[in-house]
Design a protein around this nucleic acid. Structure first.
Lengths: 194, 194
DNA sequence: CGCGGGTTTGATGATGCTCAAGCCCGGTGG
DNA sequence: CCACCGGGCTTGAGCATCATCAAACCCGCG
């Protein structure tokens, strides 16, 4: 499990880790298994950990006053799951995060992450890169949400994250795109004809 | 102008700057005035600078195939304007950024920002904090866009950024919220009656 | 075989968009 | 001083898109 994380950090920060650093990483991340449907975080809780997904898939969503789920994020292998807002500000989260598949993760707490950033420069670097990427991806999503029609949003997703489509059922994808499963179904069937 | 930036950096990074650091900041930021409607960035260009807004207001938007503007971001005093994606990856931007009011900014190039981060720890710290905040704000906006109806989105904006409403005309606010000015107008009038 | 989750299809309706007209108001120029 | 203009805001009628609700289907699995 850890090898995958080490490799990920080295690749994404473009830094080679020495023995000591690897040791530190081993000591700061906690391995954990989530069964399908098990929660990493529930609304109202403070997000104590961010989780590196070694294998599996998770989703982050809110539930509105009518009880409907709205998927704000999906994550699979080599992504990070966690509510940044709750994690950094230590405030109650407005989101749920649960495992969509049985999932293996490596989790790190806030304190440990701060320590890690101090002692392993690559980790600090990586953290910054991830924040940047996150901000970039989210701005694209905002643009797509306010600018495009349902079928354009689907087309965008197919281009940006094709790996999501086989991985999650359509009602999840639909929610992620801000539409109903019925609409997604119709778009897909008519989309192919043209 | 610079005093405002210094103050901003000190407050947001919670670090006091020494003379040398202040000197470095003076040397790395370029002051510039934008007239109303003047572009900081146009679609297809690489975003060379991020701009700290000392006074005024700017907007960031895309233009779709029908020629309609979609506002992805608004910024006023003590905010930063710039397309993060284009700036960090040095790729052509998909957005326009222009001044909505006559605006005074302090701009910094990518190279200078990298240098600054090396020599002024507070700047590096700040940069990280801003990325975090950006990611947090954008996730909220995504959630709002995919979960809420037009009137709920307006309510959210009124709570989150009340300072925008008197500052920008309604058709700008409407676009920011992903609706038409007519819809916004109707929501506002019926909203008050209740 | 029956069950449950996922997907599709259809009918209906609400929400929000489009297009068009009119209004308000501050600014400009005759 | 008034006429006119432009930008912004409002209002209305008709329409497109998408949501809702309901039913049926499909298929892997116990």
């Amino acid at each position: 499990m850890y090898e995958q994380l080490i490799k990920y950090i080295e690749q994404n920060s473009a830094v080679h880790l020495n023995k000591d650093e690897i040791e530190i990483i081993y000591n700061n991340f906690i391995p954990k298994k989530f069964r399908r449907r098990q929660f990493l975080l529930q609304e109202g809780e403070v997000c104590k950990y961010v989780a590196f997904i070694v294998k599996g898939a998770m989703r982050q969503y809110s539930i509105d006053e009518k009880g409907k789920e709205h998927i704000v994020g999906l994550c699979i292998e080599n992504w990070w799951a966690g509510d940044r807002e709750s994690f950094t500000k230590e405030t109650p989260s407005g989101y749920f995060i649960d495992a969509w598949e049985n999932t293996d993760v490596l989790m790190i707490s806030k304190n440990n992450l701060v320590n890690l950033a101090k002692s392993v420069p690559a980790a600090a670097e990586l953290s910054k890169i991830l924040d940047e990427r996150q901000a970039i991806a989210l701005l694209r999503r905002v643009n797509s949400a306010i600018s495009y029609s349902a079928d354009q949003r689907l087309a965008e997703l197919e281009k940006t994250y094709p790996e999501f489509l086989p991985r999650f059922p359509q009602h999840i994808i639909a929610s992620y795109l801000g539409m109903t499963k019925e609409t997604l179904s119709r778009i897909r069937s008519t989309g192919l004809k043209k």
